[in-house]
Design a protein around this nucleic acid. Structure first.
Lengths: 219, 219
DNA sequence: TTATATAATTAGATAAGACTAATTATATAA
DNA sequence: TTATATAATTAGTCTTATCTAATTATATAA
């Protein structure tokens, strides 16, 4: 499988996981950073290889083997991200792009050795779960800030978006993984959320942002 | 620069270092594992980019900037090889192929972080010198078994060939890096060399093999 | 110097992946 | 139901990197 095929397959999986079901060519094109016509070409190719269920001009999804493929790419991506931040101490906003190049190296020996070296981690530096060698995803419940109620306290545990602009914004807000906070109010008008981090003053985030930040509730 | 351009440039450099000066298309083709016509195409492209000095139907060499380019690729390759063997504990015969895929990721941040993580190493697992960030090669003298005299003792310090078949042969002979041995005799007929490793019995290696094994002489 | 073997190059294909521009589907509003 | 906006696809082009087969250079031996 080529690097491009792997990246498209990964993005179909992630897009569908984030609610874009069924996937559409223009959404996929946006996700991989290409034009819709390129996405159409690739989806047709992936369909021929049995990785995608495709009905012309309607949406599409991954087949069972396409999903397994995607999970392996995601596994490689996230293990490399973790290595880059944890071991090489590279800024977490930079690692996504590097991991996108590293993920295409498809060697079980390499990736399983890396996984062992990192100590069989469960989460990547953005709080996303790392699939295991069999493509199994350790089951964890993912609640978003958007799901919280007023006065509820919680702790940041991950992010749905690993793009540099979003992560830079998160860093600016001080909402790094582990940060505790409380929901101060929910704004009916546009569904924004006002939160107050422990040891900081409160501010408002949009609905979109509140849906991209995973949390665990204080026990 | 594409992965292929990087690999060709690297192989031109290594080939010339190993005495193929000037380089020729059929030799280069052999080194990268392609046909001579492909090598011709690539050499023409590299010439247009100012990396190669080329005179049609005669040999060619790298320009100053081509050489710098090659040294950076070699640097990345050897740092990754070291990481794979030292940290991930992957068999040294396997790492060359993996490093060939990793070497194309051209990020100074990544590779300088990796170098720091590895502790600014000077040698890769095959005993080859690692160029620094500026493309400088730490100066070390490279003597081969073939240069030794009868009864001279020495220690294996590296190999000119990092291909799997050669390394498997070396491993079989027990001539790993650090192994001490003595030259028992030089065979005039075909310039083979009889050596006796410390703690083992003597055997004969061909001239070609004797030229691929670097040594340091016992003080 | 001419014949010949070897090396090098050219010509022409192919495959992957991307693009633009044009066309065709689909779904929604009037 | 028809018009229209949006989405999707097709057609055709480009680049990179390969290949085979044919041709041309070069150098060596007779």
């Amino acid at each position: 499988m080529t690097a491009a095929e792997q990246e498209y397959t990964k993005q179909i999986y992630l897009g569908i996981s984030n609610g874009h079901s069924p996937m559409h060519t223009h959404v996929l094109a946006e996700l991989v950073g290409a034009r819709p016509s390129s996405a159409t070409d690739m989806v047709k190719k992936l369909t021929l290889k049995g990785l995608v269920n495709y009905r012309k001009s309607h949406g599409f999804s991954l087949t069972e083997s396409g999903e397994q493929m995607a999970l392996q790419v995601i596994r490689r991506h996230r293990l490399w991200e973790l290595f880059l931040t944890e071991n090489l101490k590279i800024d977490w906003k930079e690692v996504h792009a590097m991991a996108n190049e590293l993920q295409c190296i498809n060697s079980d020996l390499l990736i399983n050795s890396l996984e062992a070296y990192l100590g069989y981690p469960v989460y990547d530096p953005h709080g996303e779960v790392i699939p295991d060698a069999k493509g199994q995803i350790p089951q964890t419940e993912r609640m978003e800030i958007y799901d919280l109620k007023v006065n509820q306290g919680a702790k940041v545990s991950g992010f749905r978006d690993s793009g540099k602009p979003f992560l830079a914004y998160i860093e600016k807000l001080g909402l790094l993984i582990g940060q505790k906070f409380k929901v101060k109010s929910l704004i009916d008008y546009n569904h924004s959320v006002e939160i107050k981090p422990n040891g900081g003053s409160s501010f408002i985030i949009t609905k979109e942002t509140a849906q991209k930040i995973y949390v665990t509730i204080n026990e």
